[in-house]
Computed example of a mutant assay.
Amino acid sequence: MRRSPLLPIFLTVFVDVLGLTLVLPLLPFYAEHFGASELVVGVLAASYAVCQLVSGPILGRISDRVGRKPTLLASQTGTFIGFLVLGSASSLWMLFLGRIIDGLTAGNLTIAQAYISDVTRPEERTRAFGLIGIAFGSGFLLGPAITGELASRFGYGAPALGAAALSLTSILLTATLLPAKPIAPAAATESAEAGAARPASVGRGDAFRRFFDRPLARRRLLEFFAFSLSFSTLIGGLALFLERRFAFGVKETGYIFAFSGLIGGSIQGGALGRLAKRYGEQRLAVVGFATMVIGYGLLGAAYGLPALLLLVAVGAFGSAVVRPSITTLLTKSVGRDEQGAALGVSQSLASVSQIVGPIGAGWLIEHRALTAYGLMAATFAVVGLILGAQKLPAGEPVEL
């Protein structure tokens, strides 16, 4: 483990995610504290994504040019500043400012994924991307539970300041542990690499056209987009849903997020690699989409805690296997020198989903359409399920 090139990136992502999860379940309650409506809460979440939509592809291309480490450090510094602004907020506009600053430098996950692609063989990549899932699961397990305690004891600003401290820790970890120039394994090859040596430093529109002109890359990006829309809708409205349906406060909501993280982290930390080898990433993604449909679609019918926990567990399993599977399939569909740009495009699609999902969820919940909120998240997962169940484009290699 000490020699693993993935250990430093796991530690930095884990600390980043832990900071994020301190803030995520807090923001709806924080915003309502300053008089925000449900729709404004959704717009607050979307403001981060709007800025990320601009910055994501740029940071992906910069990381291809100047290296993962310096770009990751710049991104983490923006996150640190954004959390400081949130922690010191005295009005609603300061919450928006903090999220905007964070969004304009938001590239941590994209750069981490590109780094993993740099240092792993294609056949090892799903399990390696599962490390990010473990970091997310562990962060969601610890962060939200801590948030509830901090907010109830010290006020809404305390979790954000705690997140800032974690972000600073992440900067130090990246600066001291992450190699400046990761070395790809000698045996690593890409089926799409032959003849694909194209410059990564192209505009965002060119990057979209480049990847969407290829049937397999287009399919992977659309599958990722469907997943992101579904997951963003669920997460964007979950705190408000729990507040309206179950009268949960920030502490109880934090525990639900933590339970979801426990399920996701358990899957990605244990069975994911074996499942990917046995069934293949594409079949695994299809199963994951199907369980997301069930978990999210029936959420609006949950009125008791046992039913809620069951559906959260089912949905958490689905998202835990879909994200790393689709990310692996995307990186296999492009050349090694294009992976940063491709992941930047995927981050742009994720940003669009993080605009549409929370605003749509907020609008529905504001109009007390709680069942429709769950169905909206499930509908996007159905799209991913349909895409995943289709045959591969003619002439493309079959992935086992």
Rank of each mutant, 00 (worst) to 15 (best):
R3K: 15
R3F: 08
S4F: 07
P5W: 07
L6K: 11
L7M: 02
I9N: 00
L11P: 00
T12N: 08
V13W: 07
V17E: 06
F29Q: 11
Y30I: 13
G35K: 13
Y48L: 05
L53F: 13
S55N: 02
P57Y: 07
L59W: 11
L59R: 04
L59K: 03
D64C: 03
G67Y: 09
L73W: 05
S75C: 04
F80T: 03
L86F: 08
S88F: 15
S90T: 02
F96K: 10
G98L: 14
T110R: 00
I111T: 05
P122F: 12
E124R: 03
E124K: 03
R125P: 07
T126L: 15
L131G: 01
I132K: 09
G137E: 07
G143C: 14
G143M: 09
G143Q: 01
G148V: 12
E149R: 13
A151T: 11
F154L: 14
Y156I: 04
A158N: 01
A164Y: 05
L168S: 00
T169Y: 02
S170T: 11
L172C: 01
T174H: 06
L177E: 04
A180T: 01
K181F: 13
I183D: 12
A186Q: 01
T189D: 13
G195A: 08
R198L: 10
A200K: 00
F208G: 00
P215F: 03
P215D: 07
F225W: 14
F231E: 07
L234P: 05
L234H: 03
G237E: 01
A239C: 09
L242D: 06
F246P: 05
V250K: 12
K251L: 11
G254C: 05
Y255N: 06
G261D: 11
G264F: 08
G264M: 12
S266A: 13
Q268F: 03
L272K: 12
Y279L: 15
Y279W: 15
G280L: 13
A290L: 14
L298M: 10
A301G: 04
G304Y: 00
G304D: 06
L305F: 05
L308K: 00
L309E: 04
L310H: 08
L310S: 06
L311P: 02
V312A: 04
F317P: 10
G318V: 00
T327N: 09
L330I: 09
K332N: 04
K332M: 13
V334C: 09
G335I: 07
E338H: 02
L349N: 06
A350W: 01
G357Y: 00
G362H: 02
I365F: 06
T371Y: 11
Y373D: 07
G374S: 02
L375R: 08
G384N: 07
G384M: 10
A389F: 15
L392M: 15
A394F: 06
G395A: 08
V398K: 15
